[in-house]
Amino acid sequence: MWNEEVVAGRPAWRHTASGVVFREVPGGTYRMGLSEAELAAVRAIERSGDAEDTLEPFFAAAAEAQPVREVRVEPFLIARHPLTVEQVQHRLPDYEDDYADADSSAARLEDDLDELLAALPFRLPSEAEWEYAARAGTTTLTFRGDGKPGEDQLLDDFGAEDRIAAAENAFGLAGVGSANELCADVWIPGFADAPADARPRLGDGPRVVRGGAADLYPWQGCDEWLLLLAATRYEHSQFTAVRPAAPVPPRG
């Protein structure tokens, strides 16, 4: 079911039936959530005169990604990038995507979402796993640092290997923050009483979404870059991409 191989110079696991490439994320602990240092970094960007003038909603919603807390994450697999239209069609042959420019673009599922999740032999990552994987050992606004992310950080089409490899973080994941990616957790504002072991918070209602800066491209000067931040989270309401996760397969 799984082949261990090297993809773009990094270890990877390929799911043989679907061809989806996964990276193994090492276990560890990290500080999850929107820290005061990150808020200060956003304010510093704002003072530079280089940011747009609509940051008030971001600061008003900061408590939805707080309090910052230490979370322990066990090793797991997560897809190198969100599932593409072609990869979704492997499970749902009749799937069509009105939001994608090509079959190699990240798929945005709406009416077909539940059907895909039922058909996949994988699971959704918890949002604690997602943020840990997105940060890839960093504590900054994005894995690239505390600078304002530019449109050059967006990656929504995964048909060119050189572009994918150039966009990877330290864990070998590409396009992090570009598409809006669904997590396993039900939406709960804030992290009060959230588990410290990366389990998803389950229940009824909409799920948590992370990322989504490419879904508003071309940017219109409304601070869409904030969706690239590792800690940005919001409530799922419509179409979404899926970056599946799985247990680490046994070796040998």
Score class of each variant (00 low, 15 high):
Pro67Leu: 03
Asp94Lys: 13
Arg207Pro: 00
Ala107Gln: 04
Cys183Gln: 04
Leu182His: 05
Ala160Cys: 11
Ala118Leu: 08
Val25Gly: 06
Val209Cys: 04
Phe191Glu: 04
Ser178Gly: 11
Gln238Leu: 09
Ala196Pro: 05
Ala62Gln: 07
Tyr234Gly: 05
Leu226His: 04
Val242Tyr: 00
Leu216His: 15
Glu235Tyr: 01
Ala17Lys: 11
Gln153Tyr: 12
Ala51Glu: 10
Glu131Val: 09
Ala107Arg: 08
Arg199Pro: 04
Pro189Gln: 11
Arg144Ile: 02
Asp162Arg: 13
Pro244Lys: 00
Phe158Met: 02
Asp97Val: 11
Ala118Cys: 01
Tyr95Gln: 13
Ala170Arg: 14
Asp50Asn: 14
Phe158His: 03
Leu39Val: 06
Glu110Pro: 02
Pro206Gln: 12
Pro149Glu: 02
Gly212Phe: 04
Thr240Gln: 02
Gly28Pro: 09
Phe76Asn: 01
Lys148Ala: 03
Pro195Met: 04
Pro11Arg: 14
Pro249Trp: 14
Arg91Val: 06
Asp94Ser: 15
Phe59Leu: 07
Arg210Ala: 10
Glu46Ser: 14
Glu110Thr: 06
Pro249Ser: 10
Ala107His: 01
Ser104Phe: 03
Val85Leu: 03
Glu127Thr: 08
Ala102Leu: 13
Val88Phe: 13
Thr84His: 12
Gly190Asn: 07
Val176His: 03
Leu216Asn: 12
Ala100Glu: 05
Gly172His: 03
Arg69His: 13
Val73Ser: 13
Gly137His: 15
Ala179Ile: 08
Pro218Gly: 08
Gly172Asn: 08
Arg23Gly: 10
Glu168Ile: 07
Thr54Ala: 09
Asp114Gln: 13
Ala65Thr: 02
Gly205Asn: 12
Thr138Gln: 15
Glu235Asp: 07
Pro244Asn: 04
Glu74Met: 14
Val186Arg: 13
Glu74Leu: 15
Ala40Val: 01
Ala63Cys: 03
Ala245Glu: 00
Ala198Leu: 03
Glu168Tyr: 04
Cys183Pro: 05
Val7Thr: 15
Glu129Gly: 07
Arg163Glu: 15
Gly159Met: 11
Glu36Ala: 09
Tyr30Asn: 11
Leu216Ile: 05
